[in-house]
């Protein structure tokens, strides 16, 4: 990275010459806008940023950013990004992916990037439906979701992306939502600052094929009772009056209302740095209407990146110069 002071960048400096072509009202517009704001504040030159994507509505995002960008095959972005990081460690690498890309074809590669802890920032835009291919069920579609491939309502059990990521040993896992731009910015900044694979799930409204699926989290009258904003070291409280909390009953979570003998001391305290991801996993499985859903950083721990570990293991084994390799261990002279 250059050491001379950087010219200050504005969000507008990250606009490419391509007109964004999502449907009017699509949540992706807001994600693109916040991304530019966050990038402008990062202080990383445009030339040292790369956005990797796959097919899908989410995958269009890199085309609208004036950085390096690569649009690969369905689900393969984590593998492409890993290769890029190994080749060129001066580049900060982001992946922009959707539930169809990352969790249908790409689950395998996503899991391996997470367990390896490659230094990548993954934005998983989850709208619980295939958009660009025109409205089919996705691996995250809720039961009952009506699509072209589930005309009577989806009957498959959906994947929970953050539970999957935690099970794959992710070192940074967060969730935010397209309409809460301040929270989204904060999560993107946190991801940018993390060393290792950072996964941020963004609940995104697909206006055309799954409109309103996150209404409980966006409607001003509903969201206070439907969402917990995770804060490290703070109790897991929610509700308009912040008088409801989450506590553990054995291994089961339960919602309690403060008062009548229940105090704040009964409520779980959020610890994003816990060595074991057990509680983070529990929080990642909470879904409405029985439970509030969590937004914020579920887990943020430090462990060596893949790049570091690979270099260390390479240093542990003596390399050989070309002459020694060519000659091999056994050779003979012919006069």
């Amino acid at each position: 990275m250059p050491t001379t002071p950087l010219p200050t960048l504005t969000p507008g400096d990250f606009t490419s010459d391509q007109q964004a072509r999502w449907c009017p009202g699509c949540g992706d517009f807001s994600i693109l806008a916040q991304m530019k704001i966050v990038l402008a504040d990062l202080g990383v030159p445009r030339a040292n940023l790369a956005f990797i994507a796959g097919p899908g509505c989410a995958g269009r995002l890199p085309h609208y950013l004036n950085t390096f960008g690569f649009h690969g095959s369905l689900g393969r972005a984590p593998a492409l990004a890993t290769g890029l990081r190994l080749a060129n460690e001066n580049v900060q690498v982001w992946i922009v992916t959707g539930d169809g890309d990352a969790l249908s074809a790409g689950t395998n590669h996503l899991v391996h990037a997470l367990r390896r802890n490659v230094d990548l920032k993954i934005i998983l835009i989850n709208n619980e439906v295939f958009g660009l291919s025109k409205g089919q069920a996705s691996p995250t579609s809720r039961p009952g979701t009506r699509t072209k491939t589930s005309p009577e309502g989806s009957f498959e059990t959906p994947l929970r992306p953050l539970s999957l990521a935690l099970a794959a040993e992710a070192s940074f896992v967060a969730r935010t939502i397209d309409v809460d731009v301040n929270h989204m910015s904060e999560m993107l900044e946190r991801a940018a600052a993390h060393r290792g694979t950072a996964l941020v799930e963004i609940y995104q409204n697909c206006k055309i094929f799954n409109d309103g699926v996150f209404e409980y989290a966006t409607d001003t009258t509903l969201k206070a009772d439907s969402l917990i904003y995770l804060e490290h070291g703070r109790p897991l409280l929610f509700g308009k009056d912040r008088n409801q909390g989450l506590r553990l009953n054995g291994f089961e979570p339960e919602v309690v209302t403060l008062g009548h003998g229940i105090t704040i001391d009964d409520v779980l305290i959020h610890d994003e740095k816990a060595a074991e991801p057990t509680l983070a996993f529990l929080l990642s499985r909470l879904i409405g209407p029985a439970f509030p859903e969590c937004l914020g950083v579920f887990r943020s721990v430090q462990r060596p990146t893949f790049e570091q570990s690979l270099d260390e293991s390479r240093q542990a084994r003596p390399t050989r110069d070309l002459e020694s390799l060519l000659t091999g261990d056994e050779s003979w002279l012919v006069a």
Binding site: A50, I52, F70, G72, S73, R76, A79, L80, A81, T82, G83, L84, R85, L86, A87, H109
Partner: peptide
């Protein structure tokens, strides 16, 4: 894909 990412 890793090799292609490296080439990129």
């Amino acid at each position: 894909n890793l090799a292609i990412g490296a080439a990129f």
